[in-house]
Amino acid sequence: MDIVIAQFSNTVTVILMVLGLYVVLARGNLIKKLIGLSIFQTSVYLLYVGPGKIIGGTAPIIAEGFDVYSNPLPHVLMLTAIVVGVATLALGLAITVRIHEAYGTIEEDEILKKDGDA
């Protein structure tokens, strides 16, 4: 039972990651795939930020009276990753919209079928 508590953050990370992976693989709808991709992405945030936490520590803002701080480096990386993530999400959505205009559908199998017909 100890190991479950010690690895709780990593376990949640893995479960979220697998859920995201499943949505990306199993769903044919392109927007659904993008949502799955963002779930995957948030699990990566947890993967980075989780180990950076120290029990009894505080946020990495230097102030008097605190000695133990969380690791600031993962926070920096994830901060930029979130903003870049929304930019890439928007790019994916833009491509989806263009695909919908060209094919009239955003389902993967229907697109492939139309490609086969043409």
Binding site: A59, I61, L79, T80, I82, V83, V86
Partner: peptide, 12 residues
């Protein structure tokens, strides 16, 4: 620079 925040947060 003093508390939580910065360019990315303010931008969004």
């Amino acid at each position: 620079e003093l508390g939580a925040g910065g360019g990315f947060q303010a931008g969004v």
